[in-house]
C-alpha cells in the first residue's frame, strides 16, 4: 500500500513537470481546430500485387487465366489429387461431396445436387477448384490442371465431350443444364406473412407428428 501511494505521487510530480516544461505555446489550440477528412491512409498496390491475388472467375469469363485441358488429361489428375474424397468418378466417398450424376433428382425425396444436376455456371468450377482445392492443399493446381479437372468433371456429367479442349476462350460458353431453374430471392412477395392471430388460431386439434427423442441422433456428452 505504501509503495503504491508513493508511485502515484511521483507520477503526478513528473506529469506536472512535463506540462511546465513544454509550455504549450504551440499551434494546437482549440479555436484553430478543424475536423480533417480521412486521407493518406493505405497504400496503392502494384499491378503485380493485384495480379498475385486476383484469381476470381465470373460467368462471363472475366478472370479466366490462359491455359487449357481435356477430360482425358483431367482423369489422371483427378485420380491423383481429388478421388480420395470425391471417388474416381465424382461419386463421393463417405460424406464428401458428390460431383456427378443426380440429373432429374431435384424434385425427389433425396435430391442429389451435383455439378451436372444443379450448378448454374461452369465458371464456378474453375473459380472454386483454383482457390480451394484440393482440400488441404489449396491453390497448388496450375491453370492447365484446373482446366483439365473441370473438363473431366463436365465430361463425367455428360456436358462436354471427353476430347474437347477447354481453354480461356470457350470455358465460359459452356451451358449448364440447370441454369434456368435458378431465380432471385422472392420471399418479400411469396412469403409476406403479416397475420398475427391471437385466439382460436387452429381449426383442427393439435397433434404431435414427430418427436426428436424418437430418432435418437442428438449428440450426448461423454
Amino acid at each position: 500500500m505504501f509503495s503504491w501511494c508513493k508511485m502515484m505521487k511521483s507520477q503526478t510530480i513528473f506529469a506536472v513537470a512535463a506540462l511546465v516544461g513544454l509550455g504549450f505555446v504551440g499551434t494546437a489550440l482549440a479555436q484553430d481546430y478543424q475536423r480533417p477528412s480521412v486521407s493518406g491512409i493505405g497504400s496503392v498496390p502494384s499491378e503485380a500485387q493485384i495480379a498475385a491475388w486476383d484469381i476470381d472467375v465470373r460467368p462471363d469469363g472475366l478472370g479466366l487465366p490462359i491455359g487449357s485441358g481435356t477430360a482425358e488429361l483431367g482423369e489422371e489428375i483427378f485420380a491423383d489429387r481429388c478421388a480420395q474424397c470425391h471417388g474416381d468418378f465424382g461419386e463421393g466417398v463417405d460424406r464428401w461431396p458428390v460431383l456427378t450424376g443426380g440429373q432429374g433428382s431435384l424434385t425427389e425425396h433425396r435430391p442429389e445436387k451435383t455439378i451436372g444436376s444443379y450448378w448454374p455456371y461452369s465458371s464456378t468450377l474453375f473459380d472454386y477448384i483454383y482457390r480451394a482445392m484440393p482440400y488441404g492443399e489449396a491453390k497448388s493446381l496450375t491453370p492447365d490442371e484446373v482446366y483439365a479437372i473441370s473438363a473431366y468433371l463436365l465430361a463425367e456429367n455428360e456436358i462436354v465431350e471427353r476430347d474437347q479442349v477447354l481453354n480461356q476462350d470457350n470455358f465460359a460458353q459452356i451451358k449448364m443444364p440447370n441454369q434456368a431453374n435458378f431465380f432471385a430471392d422472392d420471399r418479400s412477395k411469396s412469403e409476406a406473412y403479416t397475420e398475427r392471430c391471437m385466439t382460436n388460431c387452429k381449426t383442427e386439434p393439435v397433434t404431435i407428428v414427430s418427436a426428436a427423442p424418437e430418432l435418437d441422433v442428438t449428440p450426448e456428452d461423454e
Binding site: D56, V57, R58, P59, K113, I115, Y118, W119, P120, Y121, S123, T124, D127, Y128, A132, F182
Partner: peptide, 8 residues
C-alpha cells in the same frame, strides 16, 4: 460472381 457459396 456466382461463387460456389452462392450457387452450389
Amino acid at each position: 460472381w456466382f461463387a460456389r457459396e452462392e450457387t452450389s
